[in-house]
């Protein structure tokens, strides 16, 4: 956990990134090693592309979205994610479930990151510092559904599906007449 910002002033973690309710944003801008952009594309489009990454982020359980953008003619890479809570205090957890290993596959093609991978030459803390050093806080961070975690969103979506199943039952209109179900009946018309 970091105690100071880049100016050395004490701050609560995380040092960078904005947060709306429980959801935080992380944007990391990296320089691609000259000529390595094709290798990065292969990581995302190759045969086993993304499997390990998907598995790892699912295991973490906090990620809403992640985007990996090659830009400036493949000379730079943006990692942009939104997730629940803090990320820096979870860095050990990310390492343990394989996120750092999955990110290794493209980070090794970025400047300042060891080409032999983090396990060979970085501590977890140093891997965190590499990302933090290249992180830029968003000027603004807006969410259409503030205040909810990925887990709650997935639960709400599952509930909506269940509700639609109920509505497909021929007895639904009659069942929803009960006064306790009035708010549900209001939502049943469309």
């Amino acid at each position: 956990m970091s105690q100071t910002n880049d100016e050395g002033a004490p701050v609560r973690s995380p040092r960078k990134g904005r947060r709306v309710g429980p959801v935080s944003e992380l944007s990391v801008f990296l320089k691609v090693k000259p000529g390595h952009d094709e290798a990065i594309r292969k990581v995302f489009h190759g045969e086993a592309a993304g499997d390990a990454l998907a598995e790892a982020v699912t295991a973490v359980g906090s990620l809403h979205q992640a985007r990996y953008v090659l830009f400036d003619n493949g000379t730079r890479l943006l990692i942009a994610t939104t997730f629940d809570g803090d990320w820096d205090v979870y860095i050990d957890d990310f390492a343990a479930v394989g996120v750092l290993d999955a990110w290794d596959t493209f980070l090794i093609h970025c400047e300042g990151y060891p080409e032999e991978g983090w396990r060979a030459s970085l501590t977890v803390e140093q891997a965190k510092e590499f990302l933090t050093a290249n992180q830029v806080t968003a000027e603004d961070f807006w969410i259409d559904y503030p205040g909810v975690t990925a887990k709650e969103i997935n639960k709400a979506l599952a509930l909506q599906q269940t509700f639609q199943q109920v509505l497909d039952n021929p007895g639904a209109a009659e069942a929803l007449q009960h006064p306790a179900l009035e708010p549900l009946l209001d939502s049943a018309a469309d």
Partner: peptide, 23 residues
């Protein structure tokens, strides 16, 4: 301390995000 008590207190005791219950 950061991995132990400070993590437990800030993430597990004072918040509910880790179990998907931020309130």
């Amino acid at each position: 301390l950061t991995r132990g008590f400070e993590f437990v207190k800030s993430q597990w005791i004072n918040e509910g995000i880790f179990i998907g219950m931020p309130s």
